[in-house]
Design a protein around this nucleic acid. Structure first.
Length: 942
RNA sequence: GCGGAGAUGGCGGAACGGCAGACGCACCUGGCUUAGACCCAGGUUAUUGAGAGUUCGAAUCUCUCUCUCCGUACCA
């Protein structure tokens, strides 16, 4: 009977929905397993074949675990707030809620085609008030807590207020940016506004003025990862630095726990390293340098206190607050000039001019506390206000940037580390012997560092300090399409959070999505929303990471209107056992989610320290980019040249073409025929008048035997390159099961690999062969006969291999095993129930539709997806005899068969007495014979 | 610069330190067919990026180098 996948899929898709097959509830009698896919943003472009890769892998694993007896939570939902929908609204007037809704429906339909076992009753959308009520609630908790460094956890701000009222902040162990000391009496004397400002320096969610990436064209602040090469990722608009009052999350308070928590989770080393580098913990010393003729101290941070004798000058960030106080009048013009230049510089210019050394001398001098020498104080862009103290002691002998700076401005360089014992060491390597440094001469760098640290502390010059690259997370966006902050301000601009019973703060309706000219969010225009009895609302909205920082918890109990999730569900599902997703979320989402989770853990709302126990990074599915070489001429003539005709030394621009026009797409010699070229020109009429040189050197004239070879390269699958393959098309042509199998068959899940639709024939053949095993002509035909030993062996070998492969997430090799198995059974014409029935259950996670159909044809009433996973039986796997490769000095000469239970001695004796022995060894001396039981025989000769 | 991953036929990729190239694509021959597709039978593809070391034995472990992809970047 023909394998009619579309009828099969349509039938079971409906049947599964009707029977709530994938609906899951808490079941204390079963062990739980939580499999999660990364939260998709429903873009207008829909899914391409790359997106489902991870979903298929996690779906196979979920189904596998369920058949193994686990109660599996495998939900899906949508990260529905975000800039693209808002941009689209500005461009078209379509409300983001409407376009988002439409996009989600399309996503769900596309996902539905692929046969995932999602429990859609648990779907969440971050843009729905029932969901963002709890996002806002968690924010109010962050607002009302601070981090205590002694208890090492978040604590209520009210406890801190009590402490201030009783003792001031002298003994305070809270993590803070607040530097001043005050007594209980002083605290009592502060105004409400002053108190509020001080507390703001302690809260885990707080407001401060910060330099942000301001994009004038988009009218919004962008996150670092939304900027590429100094331009906004979306739209490519220029980005500059601008000071604004913003909400921040005090992620730095959790830096250590975020860092050390990585030790206890199963993530790839690359992902862990990305987070480690992002957190960027370093240990060093904060040292005060006195400024000549001033009371001011300059505090610097260094990881190399051992080089302090080599510190010959100082550099401050241009925006450092001390600059205006210490600069001399004759230098003030230069300094001010440099400051304004550096302020004007866009982020892009700052990045592209890394190699260029610039700076200005303030005219002031500091004193090196150890050498007592005068150190000129400079300002320069290469010192960042945000990191450390915004000031450095420059050691030109042991720091490349300081060295370049000293060279350029003719500053003194004193060698302090002798690296002659380490010829391969670079300037930054912490090795060598200290010289020219009175106190520490002769010491190795490591010893010198610790000696200097003690020295600095005992002399009261400074203290040991841990620093982080990571900054507090900017949490404000001047946008419409995001969660409103649950915050109101009174007439003194003192913020207050909104109580749970008043939540959610609903996003008001509007049809004007443009930001205001001064950079305020569109919400600020809606006066009757902004002004409330309780005060003036915050008009910024939260960034996209807000909703995705805790969504995995909501899936546990998605419809709870009393709590973000019930205690029972949080205790049962606990945390995500397997998380599958791309590495593009390495820092933003994965770090903030860990931060929120740890915070909720501190407050006793969740019961695990880490949200994602094991994480698999799926690779990207790439596309082939087909493009046409366009000669770059000085005049304005346009000439396309077939790729096999391009000349060396000439420059070409490569114009991507829609892959649908290309013949032999994907192969190295793919080309445009006359027909393809005419389609290309219809599509890009701006090239209608271009000269086009074909593969044989002739010019294109619109018809005939024309051939134009295109350049083919592997790259991103993207709308930009017109090479997107839609899974809907593949599913329509080959069926969902074939599509699933093929995505997995392409290669290891973590690796990136190009999509090649041709290769799908292989798995398509496999599934039809598998189907064919159950039929004789048009009739379903399965025999009740007892299988042979050989047939059992094939089955049980496959079970063993596939089971192990799924555990290792090696789905491509599992599918190979299925192919081998089916090929062999087909050769044996095996149609026995005792072989085929277990095989159906084994294949069910990979090909859910086909196996369900066959399972029912076999006479089963319950779904195959509720069946038990088959267990491999060792008794069928024992071999009677083993073919040993016989090697001479490790090189294989021949094969020889021995009984499986032959001992080493038996084998050696037989080899030694073997007739062919002298032929193999060329009559050389046999030194010894190595026999690895069940593996191989190696004869060592000389 | 720094960090991570990787390099195996024409292509995607398999190989607990033990028969390199499983499985699939592509290609070729033959059968089936009016023809093609499907299907069936068979066939073609070696310095495992380079060099050294450890070992009876290395794609696999160690070191050096080259190249590719990804991430990140003035972090003191």
């Amino acid at each position: 009977m023909k394998y009619d996948y579309s009828a099969i899929e349509a039938r079971w898709k409906e049947q599964w929905i009707e029977s709530d097959l994938y609906k899951v509830e808490i079941d204390q009698s079963k062990p739980k397993f939580y499999v999660l896919d990364m939260f998709p943003y429903p873009s207008g472009a829909g899914l391409h074949v790359g997106h489902p890769l991870g979903y298929i892998a996690s779906d196979i694993y979920s189904r596998y675990k369920r058949q193994k007896g686990f109660n599996v939570l495998h939900p899906m939902g949508f990260d529905a707030f975000g800039l693209p929908a808002e941009e689209y609204a500005i461009a078209t007037g379509v409300h983001p809620a409407d376009s988002t809704e439409k996009n989600i429906e399309r996503y769900k339909q596309q996902l539905g085609n692929i046969g995932f076992s999602f429990d859609w009753s648990r779907e969440v959308r971050t843009c729905e008030p029932e969901y963002y009520k709890w996002t806002q609630w968690i924010f109010t908790l962050l607002y009302s807590h601070y981090y205590d460094t002694k208890a090492n956890k978040a604590m209520s701000i009210s406890e801190l207020i009590t402490e201030f009222e009783e003792k001031g902040n002298k003994e305070c162990t809270a993590f803070t940016s607040y530097k001043e000391n005050f007594s209980a009496k002083q605290w009592a004397a502060y105004s409400e506004k002053e108190k509020s400002d001080i507390l703001s320096s302690y809260r885990l969610a707080y407001r401060k003025i910060g330099y942000v990436n301001w994009c004038e064209a988009l009218g919004t602040v962008l996150a670092n990862d939304q900027i590429k090469d100094g331009l906004s990722e979306r739209g490519g608009h220029p980005v500059e630095r601008k000071a604004m009052t913003q909400w921040y999350l005090r992620t730095t308070a959790y830096a250590d726990r975020l860092l050390y928590g990585l030790d206890n989770i199963e993530w790839s080393t690359s992902l862990k390293t990305i987070q480690e580098n992002w957190i960027g913990r370093s240990k060093g010393a904060a040292v005060h340098f006195s400024v000549e003729g001033h009371e001011h101290n300059i505090e610097i941070y260094t990881t190399r206190p051992d080089t302090i004798y080599g510190a010959t000058f100082m550099v401050l960030a241009p925006e450092h607050p001390l600059v205006k106080d210490i600069m001399t009048s004759d230098q003030s013009d230069q300094v001010k000039n440099y400051q304004s230049l550096s302020k004007q510089k866009s982020e892009r210019e700052r990045q592209s001019n890394v190699k260029e050394v610039t700076g200005a001398f303030t005219g002031a001098y500091a004193t090196n506390p150890f050498t007592k020498k005068k150190m000129p104080i400079w300002i320069s862009d290469y010192v960042l206000m945000d990191y450390g103290t915004g000031a450095i002691m420059a050691v030109p002998s042991d720091d490349e940037r300081d060295n370049a700076f000293a060279e350029k401005f003719g500053l003194e360089i004193v060698q302090v580390v002798d690296k002659s014992d380490y010829p391969n060491a670079g300037m930054h390597d912490k090795v060598g012997k200290i010289i020219n440094s009175e106190l520490i001469n002769g010491l190795e760098v490591k010893e010198a560092i610790s000696k200097m640290c003690t020295e600095i502390e005992s002399r009261g010059l400074g203290q040991i300090k841990v620093n982080y690259k990571m900054r507090d997370a900017n949490f404000s966006r001047q946008r419409y399409w995001g969660e409103p902050f649950p915050i109101v301000f009174n007439e003194e601009d003192i913020p207050d959070s909104i109580a749970l019973d008043q939540l959610p703060v609903q996003l008001p309706k509007t049809d004007d999505f443009k930001p205001t000219s001064d950079g305020q969010s569109p919400l600020s225009r809606i006066a009757d929303w902004v002004d409330t009895e309780a005060g003036t609302r915050e008009t910024d909205t939260m960034p996209a990471v807000a909703g995705s920082s805790w969504y995995f918890l909501r899936y546990m109990d998605p419809h709870n209107s009393e709590q973000f999730a019930s205690e029972e569900s949080l205790k049962y599902w606990e945390s995500v056992d397997l998380y599958v997703g791309g590495s593009e979320h390495a820092v933003a989402h994965l770090l903030y989610a860990r931060f929120w989770h740890k915070f909720l853990y501190d407050l006793g709302y969740v019961y695990s320290k880490e949200p994602f126990k094991k994480l698999i990074n799926q690779g990207m599915i790439q596309g082939v980019i087909e493009s046409l070489p366009l000669e770059k001429n000085s005049d304005d003539t346009l000439t396309f040249v077939s790729y096999d005709k391009i000349e060396e030394g000439k420059e070409y621009a490569y114009i991507p073409t829609h892959i649908d026009y290309v013949s032999d797409y994907g192969s190295n010699d793919s080309y445009l025929s006359a027909d393809g070229m005419s389609k290309f020109l219809d599509w890009r009429p701006d090239y209608k008048n271009a000269k086009i040189i074909g593969s044989d050197g002739s010019a294109y004239n619109g018809s005939g035997d024309f051939k134009f070879v295109t350049k083919s390269e592997v790259g991103k699958m993207s709308k930009r390159y017109y090479n997107v393959v839609n899974p809907d098309d593949v599913v329509a042509e080959y069926g969902a099961d074939t599509f699933r199998l093929y995505e997995m068959f392409l290669g290891p899940i973590e690796q990136s690999k190009p999509w090649d639709t041709k290769g799908i024939e292989g798995v398509s053949k496999f599934i039809r062969k598998f189907w064919g095993l159950f039929f004789e002509g048009d009739n379903f035909s399965v025999s009740e006969e007892e299988p042979t030993k050989e047939e059992y062996k094939i089955l049980h070998q496959t079970i063993k291999k596939v089971d192990g492969d799924i555990e290792r997430f090696s789905f491509n090799t599992a599918i190979s095993s299925f192919m081998i198995c089916v090929n062999e059974l087909k050769k044996l014409k095996c149609n026995k129930r005792k072989i085929l029935e277990p095989l159906i259950t084994l294949l069910a996670p990979f090909a859910p539709f086909t196996t369900e159909e066959l399972w029912q044809l076999m006479g089963n009433n319950e779904s195959v997806h509720l069946s038990d996973y088959p267990i491999s039986d060792e008794q069928y796997l024992v071999e009677d005899s083993i073919e040993y490769p016989v090697c001479i000095n490790g090189k294989k000469k021949t094969l020889k068969s021995f009984p499986a239970d032959a001992s080493k001695d038996d084998i050696e004796a037989e080899i030694r007495s073997s007739e062919e022995l002298s032929k193999w060894t060329n009559d050389k001396n046999i030194l010894k014979i190595i026999i690895v039981p069940k593996r191989m025989i190696n004869i060592v000769v000389k």
